[in-house]
Write a protein that binds this DNA or RNA. Structure first.
Length: 677
DNA sequence: AGGCCTCGAGTTCA
DNA sequence: CTCGAGGCCT
C-alpha cells in the first residue's frame, strides 16, 4: 500500500529533525569539547544531506537550522581574531609526478630561470600564528579557517619551545610587526604519556598526537596545557617588508631568534634533490619522535615567491608532498573465526575497506581471544588501524567515543566454525584449536602448506583449488593428490585439459623432493623448515622417523622434549602412519639423500648471515643457497652472533638492529665479491 | 631459574 | 613482520 503524502511529509520532517540534532551534537563535540567523533568529511556529508532535504522541502526550513548559520559557534572563552595576513593552505601532491609538475610550473613562471627549493618536514600538529611586537610575544592565534583564528595567547605562552622574547632583538628592531608561523605538536613520548594518564583516569584516549595537540591548544585552563608538554617548530616569518632574500635565510633567522626550527631540511638546487629528500625522509619517518605527514616544498627565493603570488586558496610557490597515511579509522563490519592448518582458531576483523599506505585494507587479524578482550573490540566499533611493517594491518585501539551502544561483543565459538567439531585451549596457551581430525578447514590449510614453495612445491595448487578439492572430498588427505586422474582435475571448476595436465605434471614432479622438504610438508606441530632438516638428517628416512622413540628424538641436538613428544605423537597416530604408507606407495621419495645444501666451499664456514630488504640481483632463496653452498648459515633475526647483514633496498628494522649491535653490513655486490677472492 | 637466541606460526594484498 | 614459545647456555 502506498504511503499517503502527509505520512511521507512527516517522515521527512522527522529525518530533518534527526539530522539537525545530529549536526548540532557534532558541532558541540568539535567546537566545545574538542573531541570530534566524526571526520570533517563525514560532517560535511551530514550537512550536505540536510541542505538537500531543506532545498527539496523549503517549507520545513527553520531560521535556527544549522544550515542558516555561517561557520560554527566559537568555543566559549576564546576570542576570534582576524589574521593580519590570511593563513593559506597548501596544494597537496601525492606522488612524484605531481612534484615534477609543480617544478615545471615554477620554472615556466620564472621564465626558465633556475629555481631552487627548500624542503622541510610537514609536522602533523596544528598551525599557529604568533605575533611579536618589540621582540615580545603579544598574541598567539590558531589557524581557524585561515581568515579568522582563535586567540590562544595564554596557552601559547605555556609552550616551552616558544620564546616569549626574541633573542636577536637588535636585528628585529628594524622589523616591527613580526609574525612567526609554525606547527604546535606533541612528541610521540608526550602523546603516549598523556594517553596513559587519561586511561588511568578513565578518560577517553586521544586517537593520535595531532588530535591531542589540537585539543590541548584549545584547552581553557592554561595549567592543563602546560602539563601536556606541547612543542613548536617554526617554519615561516612574515613582516611588512620582505627582510630575507631566501626562505632558508628566514629559517636561520628564526633559529637565531630562539625558535626550534626542524633540523631535517634541505636547500635543493633542483626537483631531483627535492625528490631524494622526500624519499630519504620517508625512510627516516618512524625514527622521528614526532609524526609527520609529508614534506613541504617551497621556492627558496622570496623575490620569486612574490612574483608567483597566490591563488585564493594557496601560494603558487609551495606544495605539500603527502606521504600515504599509515593509520586510518574504519568500522568493524564483522568478526569471523578462521581455522588454520594446526586447527588454530584465529579471529579476524572484516573491516569497511579503507585506503592505508597505498593499499585498500579490508581485514585485520585480532590474533586471539585475549587480544580481543584487551582491545575490547566489538562488531560495529570504529577502530584505529595501522600497517605494521608496511604490510600487515593491525588494530591499534577502539574509538570508544564513537560507540552507539549497538555494538555486539564477540563471543568465542564453542565449536569449530567450519566443521562444528570440539575445540580445546590447553592451559597457558594463547590460542584455541579445533581438535577434529577431519576438519575441512584444516585439511585445506594442510594441503596448501604441503604444496607450498618451501615444502613440496606444487605450483598451481592455490587457495581456490585447495578449497574445491577438499569440499568435493576429491582429496581427503594429502596423499590423495597422487591418486588424482586427468578426469578428476578436469571435473573441477575452471580447469581445462591444458591446465589440468600442468597440475598433474607438477604433482608428479613433487615426488622427487628431498626428505627435509617432505618432513616439513607433513605439517607436524613445532616442526618448521629448520627442524624438519635436522630431523631428516638425523634419521635418514621417513620410516626411521616413524619408529623413533621419544628418547631417540630428544637426543638429537636442538630437539628438546616438546618437539620430541610432538613428533613422536604425530608419527604414532594411526591415520598419519597410513598417510606415510600411502605416500611411499605413491612413489614419493622418502629417503634422505646427500643434501643439495651440503657446502661445496668453505668461504663462509662458520659465518652467520641475515638477509634484509629487497635484493636486486638475487632472490632471497638464491642468496640463501649461495651462502649455504659456501658453508655459511642464514638466520632470521639479527643478534650478537650475526657476522654479516646483507642489506638490500628499503632495509628495515634488521638494519637498525645491525647498526645498533655493530654488526658488519654488506650489500649483494660485496657478498658475491667475497666469493671470488 | 633466568635470559638470550632462535624458530614456528599466522597474517595482507597485489 | 611480530609474537609467543622452545632450546640451550650460564
Amino acid at each position: 500500500m502506498p504511503k499517503s503524502s502527509t505520512e511521507q511529509q512527516s517522515n521527512i520532517a522527522r529525518d530533518i529533525e534527526t539530522l539537525r540534532a545530529e549536526i548540532l551534537r557534532h558541532e558541540a563535540l568539535y567546537y566545545v569539547h574538542d573531541a570530534p567523533e566524526i571526520t570533517d568529511v563525514e560532517y560535511d556529508a551530514l550537512m550536505r544531506r540536510l541542505c538537500e532535504l531543506e532545498d527539496a522541502h523549503p517549507e520545513l526550513r527553520t531560521s535556527d537550522s544549522p544550515t542558516q548559520r555561517v561557520g560554527g559557534q566559537p568555543s566559549e572563552g576564546f576570542a576570534e581574531v582576524t589574521h593580519p595576513r590570511p593563513m593559506l593552505s597548501l596544494d597537496n601532491s601525492y606522488n612524484i609526478e605531481d612534484l615534477r609538475a609543480f617544478d615545471e610550473r615554477c620554472r615556466k613562471l620564472s621564465d626558465g630561470r633556475a629555481v631552487s627549493y627548500v624542503a622541510e618536514l610537514k609536522i602533523d600538529g596544528l598551525s599557529l600564528s604568533l605575533h611579536y611586537e618589540n621582540a615580545t610575544l603579544v598574541r598567539g592565534l590558531t589557524r581557524g579557517d585561515g581568515r579568522r583564528g582563535e586567540d590562544v595567547t595564554a596557552n601559547v605562552r605555556t609552550i616551552q619551545t616558544i620564546p616569549l622574547r626574541l633573542k636577536n632583538d637588535k636585528e628585529t628592531d628594524a622589523l616591527h610587526d613580526i609574525e612567526v608561523r609554525g606547527e604546535a605538536y606533541l612528541s610521540r613520548k608526550a602523546f603516549e604519556r598523556l594517553n596513559l594518564e587519561r586511561e588511568e583516569k578513565d578518560e577517553a584516549k586521544f586517537a593520535n598526537p595531532r588530535n591531542a595537540a589540537a585539543g590541548s591548544v584549545r584547552q581553557l585552563d592554561a595549567k592543563v596545557v602546560r602539563s601536556r608538554r606541547l612543542a613548536f617548530f617554526a617554519y615561516d616569518v612574515l613582516a611588512n617588508r620582505k627582510p630575507f632574500a631566501t626562505h632558508h635565510a628566514a629559517l636561520e633567522f628564526l633559529e637565531a631568534a630562539g625558535f626550534q626550527v626542524n633540523p631535517h631540511r634541505a636547500v635543493c638546487a633542483n626537483i631531483d634533490e627535492v625528490i631524494a629528500f622526500c624519499n630519504a625522509m620517508e625512510a627516516e619517518r618512524d625514527r622521528l619522535d614526532y609524526e609527520i605527514d609529508g614534506i613541504v616544498v617551497k621556492v627558496d627565493s622570496t623575490a620569486l615567491q612574490e612574483e608567483f603570488g597566490t591563488t585564493a586558496k594557496a601560494p603558487r610557490w609551495a606544495i605539500a608532498y603527502k606521504y600515504p597515511a599509515r593509520q586510518a579509522t574504519t568500522r568493524v563490519n564483522s568478526i569471523v573465526v578462521q581455522v588454520g592448518r594446526t586447527g588454530a582458531l584465529t579471529p579476524v576483523a572484516n573491516l569497511e575497506p579503507v585506503l592505508l599506505a597505498g593499499t585498500i585494507v579490508s581485514r585485520a587479524t585480532l590474533h586471539n581471544e585475549d587480544e580481543i578482550r584487551r582491545l575490547d573490540v566489538r562488531t560495529g566499533d570504529y577502530v584505529n588501524i595501522e600497517k605494521s611493517g608496511e604490510i600487515i594491518p593491525k588494530v591499534l585501539s577502539v574509538v570508544t567515543s564513537r560507540r552507539t551502544g549497538a555494538e555486539v561483543e564477540f563471543i568465542p565459538p564453542a565449536h569449530c566454525p567450519v566443521c562444528g567439531g570440539d575445540i580445546s585451549r590447553p592451559e597457558g596457551e594463547a590460542v584455541s584449536r579445533c581438535v577434529a581430525a577431519d576438519c575441512a578447514a584444516q585439511l585445506k590449510a594442510r594441503l596448501l602448506h604441503f604444496a607450498s614453495r618451501r615444502a613440496m612445491r606444487i605450483e598451481g595448487l592455490g587457495e581456490a583449488l585447495a578449497e574445491q578439492m577438499t569440499t568435493t572430498k576429491l582429496v581427503c588427505d594429502v596423499s590423495d593428490l597422487y591418486k588424482l586422474t586427468l578426469a578428476d582435475v578436469i571435473a573441477l571448476e575452471r580447469k581445462a585439459e591444458k591446465s589440468a595436465t600442468n597440475l598433474l605434471t607438477q604433482i608428479e614432479a613433487s615426488k622427487t623432493r628431498e626428505l627435509p622438504q617432505l618432513v616439513f610438508a607433513l605439517g607436524v606441530r613445532h616442526v618448521g623448515e629448520r627442524t624438519a632438516g635436522i630431523l631428516a638428517r638425523a634419521f635418514g628416512s621417513l620410516t626411521r622417523l616413524e619408529t623413533a622413540t621419544v628418547g631417540q628424538l630428544d637426543d638429537v641436538p636442538e630437539i628438546g622434549s616438546v618437539v620430541a613428544q610432538s613428533v613422536h605423537d604425530w608419527f604414532h597416530d594411526a591415520g598419519n602412519q597410513a598417510l606415510c604408507q600411502r605416500l611411499r606407495e605413491a612413489g614419493v621419495q622418502t629417503e634422505y639423500r646427500t643434501s643439495s645444501t651440503t657446502p661445496t666451499s668453505a668461504t663462509f664456514a662458520g659465518k652467520q648471515f641475515v638477509l634484509t630488504g629487497k635484493l636486486s640481483t638475487l632472490t632471497r632463496d638464491e642468496a640463501r643457497a649461495l651462502i649455504e653452498q659456501n658453508g655459511g648459515r642464514v638466520a632470521s633475526s639479527v643478534s650478537k652472533k650475526t657476522d654479516y647483514v646483507v642489506a638490500g633496498e628499503d632495509a628495515g628494522s634488521k638494519l637498525d638492529k645491525a647498526n645498533e649491535l655493530g654488526v658488519t653490513v654488506i650489500d649483494e655486490a660485496t657478498l658475491k665479491g667475497e666469493l671470488i677472492h
